[in-house]
């Protein structure tokens, strides 16, 4: 790695000087941060602060105008979305997404395919290696479906699920390939409290299993409970980086969310 990158060996992901402009306006400007291996980092900020743009750029879904980023020491700058995923960085989407016409099992297996399945020729011939890979993917998919309590719907098409259940499936699919880092875009937005608890339990279980997560979220209560560290964006710039308590007390953050001279404990 040359000219930057992670500052120490515990750092899994590092971004430097990220910038994205839309029609001359900075959506994201000079954003840089690091994520430690095994941590849960939250990325928060008011509407339009550039959170989703940041995630889109760092996962290859949008082309960044400036900046570089690395995962596990490997530079991913400029790679396509699919190559980000193959490098070990997966994501979920703000508007929940699933392959609606496919079964939950198929949805999840597609997540593992790039890592566990063989060549196209192997897929076409369907020999023993392909069957073994398929069985392995299905076993892991069932394990994850069991973990989120949806194993009895394994064969059902994803479109019959509720909004919250689909969010669970999306998270489960994103970890099928055993990525090093997952970026979750608003995992609990629009989800009822019971389901929030289930999603929270799932995230904690994954993290205990060694998965590192970056979570973009509006639900402050949820973030303050679950995150080890919080990054705050406002108008496309990173204005705070600290523990949930530090961020909660940060006057700049309060200002960004509520405007100057408002209640100090309201975040």
């Amino acid at each position: 790695m040359s000219g930057g990158g992670p500052s120490n060996k515990d750092t899994l992901f590092a971004a430097q000087g990220l910038g994205k402009r839309y029609h001359g306006v900075d959506a994201v400007a000079d954003v840089g941060f690091e994520i430690e291996r095994g941590s849960i980092v939250a990325l928060i900020g008011p509407n339009g602060s550039g959170k989703s743009t940041t995630v889109d750029c760092l996962t290859g879904f949008q082309r960044a105008d400036a900046g570089r980023w690395w995962l596990g020491g490997r530079e991913l700058t400029g790679l396509s979305a699919s190559r980000h995923a193959r490098a070990g960085l997966t994501r979920t989407f703000q508007n929940v997404r699933a392959f609606d016409e496919m079964s939950l099992l198929e949805n999840l297996c597609l997540g593992a395919q790039q890592r566990d399945a063989g060549s196209w020729w192997q897929a076409f011939t369907g020999g023993p290696a392909e069957r073994r890979a398929q069985a392995k993917m299905e076993a892991r998919a069932l394990e994850l479906l069991e973990m989120v309590g949806l194993d009895h719907y394994a064969e059902a098409p994803a479109e019959i699920l509720s909004y919250g259940q689909r969010k669970l499936v999306a998270i489960a699919a994103s970890i099928m390939a055993r990525p090093d880092l997952i970026m979750l875009d608003e995992p609990v937005a629009g989800v009822n409290p019971t389901m929030i608890n289930r999603i929270e339990a799932m995230i904690r279980a994954l993290n205990a299993d060694g998965v590192t997560l970056l979570i973009v979220e509006h639900n402050m209560e949820f973030i303050m409970r679950i995150a080890d560290r919080v990054l705050v964006l406002a108008s496309g710039r990173l204005i705070a980086d600290g523990t949930p308590d530090e961020v909660r007390r940060n006057p700049e953050v309060l200002d960004a969310y509520l405007g100057r001279s408002r209640a100090p404990h309201a975040v």
């Binding site: 995923a85 997966t90 989407f93 699933a98 609606d100 395919q113 790039q114």
Partner: peptide
């Protein structure tokens, strides 16, 4: 069915 999702899966 969902191109971005497929891309996010590599």
């Amino acid at each position: 069915q969902n191109e971005p999702l497929a891309q996010s899966m590599g």
